[in-house]
Design a protein around this nucleic acid. Structure first.
Lengths: 198, 198
DNA sequence: GTCTATAATTGGATAGAC
DNA sequence: GTCTATCCAATTATAGAC
């Protein structure tokens, strides 16, 4: 029952990741030292290296976990009408990103601090997520309910618009997350919908 | 006529700013050393301090110059129809940002590396730019040609969408900048326009 | 698993010669 | 205006005791 004194791998591991996530988001990867992370966790700097081979891998693992969770959490039903699938995507994207602002911030801002191999890996995951939205838009264009000149551009435009919510929205203000979801959905829906003939 | 040997303030000054802009955009402010900047310029590190009191001020000056240029370059005519004013804004924003990707990147990514006072200053400039778009949207809502639930949210949504172009578009590919402008204009126009009754 | 101590390097900024 | 030399603080990562 009694553990080795000072042994806490099951609890320290997550704390290292949490501390790194918070600090990297607040100050930036390059500006955060391993000593700062250790202080936040409550251990000495040497102990961190039981949980990550180096600082770069720590960053990469955080980004990969985030992208994996994103891909895992999104579900889409190709049998549904494109409009409903898009509505589902908009709500999901806003809510998922709102729930983890630090991870989102890091995943977008620290790409340049990844080694080339790690960068390629993360970009592939991002591409897989974009492809899910593009499939929805393409289905809608095929059936005539959507009208966009280029589904790839529309995909990037919609994702940029939705992710932008994280730069200004925090719960507890004048608007609820539901309000935000509703308003962005109206804008996205109109932006990609086919217009009724004049 | 002959200058003091080694005196090049008129040429070194801009070179310091150019080098800092490029390096900060590529690697991030915190990851770039004054020695790296000096090497890029072709001087020793001590010489840099003739052009900036410190590294923080160098960053701030780059961001402030960018925001000043942005505000200076945009022109709007409140007498024109809101739809034309919005079209003008979309084209201007895409083109201006496309022309200076490094400055745009820094202005969005390095806000957290500013001192609190400098941050407040830059944010005020950004707010002034956002207000220009919001005024256009408000005019269109008033006249009935636009329909958005909240002009502030629509402003942020449109700017996020348009600025997103910089993350993927580079001249010389499959699409011209004109193509991109046209497609984003269609999406923005539809997103904020009043829908014709069914 | 965590600690202390340390190696080896690099950082921003300054002083003083030219 | 630029250079060389330097100060002092901070960095990542490792070694070895417990």
């Amino acid at each position: 029952m009694a553990r080795t004194a000072g042994s806490h791998s099951d609890i320290t591991g997550p704390k290292v990741r949490d501390a790194a996530l918070t600090l990297f988001a607040r100050h930036g990867f390059a500006a955060v030292s391993m000593r700062q992370i250790a202080r936040e966790v409550g251990v000495q700097v040497g102990a961190l290296y039981n949980y990550t081979p180096d600082k770069q891998t720590l960053l990469f693992d955080l980004m990969q976990s985030h992208m994996d969770a994103l891909l895992e959490a999104f579900s889409d039903d190709p049998a549904m009408p494109p409009r409903d699938r898009l509505h589902n995507f908009v709500r999901f994207h806003i809510r998922f990103h709102h729930d983890r602002p630090d991870a989102v911030f890091i995943a977008y801002m620290e790409l340049r601090n990844l080694t080339p191999e790690n960068f390629t890996n993360i970009e592939a995951l991002r591409k897989r997520y974009e492809d899910k939205l593009e499939a929805i838009l393409r289905a809608g264009v095929s059936s005539g309910v959507f009208d966009v000149a280029d589904t790839k551009i529309a995909t990037l435009a919609v994702i940029a618009m939705l992710t932008g919510v994280n730069t200004w929205f925090r719960s507890g203000g004048r608007l609820s997350l539901q309000d935000v979801e509703d308003q962005y959905w109206q804008m996205v829906r109109k932006a990609v919908s086919a217009e009724s003939p004049a």
